[in-house]
Design a protein around this nucleic acid. Structure first.
Lengths: 161, 161
DNA sequence: GTTGCTGCAAATGATTTGCAAGATA
DNA sequence: TATCTTGCAAATCATTTGCAGCAAC
């Protein structure tokens, strides 16, 4: 948690820091502070990766082995409810959670070899939405796009063989 | 099964008809012909919809109530193995199967109100793939795109309220 | 002291599998 | 007859939940 922000920022401050936001939600929802839940929340937000429940559990357990799988499930559910995490489904049968950045919408690029996940933005998507909306008389509100391929590193590895 | 094709088309003929293709696979895999499996296969291919296992089961059961859920699961698995069905995951937690058309790749447009699913094609997607590939040094092999919104009918219904 | 948090074990729900009986080649 | 197909019940797997004990307020 490498932030400079003063500790006594009022809980209603929406400053874009997900942790602050979580504390705000926590108070608003009448939740208590607990070291296990905080560990999960802070770990998840700081690492800023696309975790499966199991992966997050495994890593958090290394820090505090007493954290249970239930707690990880419950905490991720909580974060989703607060709008600070969202489920990602890339169609591989595995559900992942990503921290919700207050920033803009993005899509995903996945390496089919090593599983690396990269977030990207591309404005042409809006053009596609327009085209399709016009053609089918839909009013489009959102989209999900995933590109699959080989990352730089994995391409190089393949070439060496 | 409204086709004009001769019944004795050799099993190796790849004529693009999914049913013929299935019979070919069936022979190749040493499977037997059974009325229940055929019912599931033919119903699935003829209806050409995005079914969940349960939906397909419910409908097939109306035709032949003796078909079991296991058989539907097994048959859809079989069709996937033959490359004649593919799993669709639109991120709503429900897995659907769609018949694989020998035709070109497509993406999906989903009405968030009534659940209607439309397949579409848009060539701008290739441009996006190029852009993103260049930016992240990826070599992209495939993609999935889903647009969510309101279909024509549901927009009208909303307007009437 | 009241109420939230936690781990555990049990429940759930979707899917898969073992097996014995029936069907097809 | 040999082997595939099927329904059923049991197994599996990820996720959720009930509950009793512990912890925060």
């Amino acid at each position: 948690m490498n932030r400079q922000q003063s500790k006594n920022t009022p809980p209603h401050a929406r400053d874009g820091d997900p942790l602050q936001e979580f504390y705000r939600c926590r108070l608003q929802m009448g939740l208590r502070s607990s070291c296990k839940r905080s560990l999960v929340v802070e770990y998840f937000i700081e690492k800023d990766r696309h975790y499966t429940v199991e992966e997050l559990y495994d890593e958090v357990k290394r820090v505090n082995p007493k954290v249970s799988l239930s707690t990880v499930y419950r905490t991720l559910k909580l974060l989703s409810d607060c709008g600070l995490a969202s489920e990602c489904n890339f169609g591989d049968g595995v559900i992942r959670f990503e921290p919700v950045h207050t920033s803009q919408h993005h899509d995903h690029l996945i390496c089919v070899e090593c599983g690396k996940i990269i977030e990207f933005r591309n404005d042409l998507i809006e053009k596609i939405q327009e085209d399709v909306a016009k053609k089918y008389t839909f009013s489009i509100s959102s989209h999900r796009m995933v590109l699959y391929g080989l990352c730089d590193g994995c391409q190089k590895k393949k070439r060496r063989k």
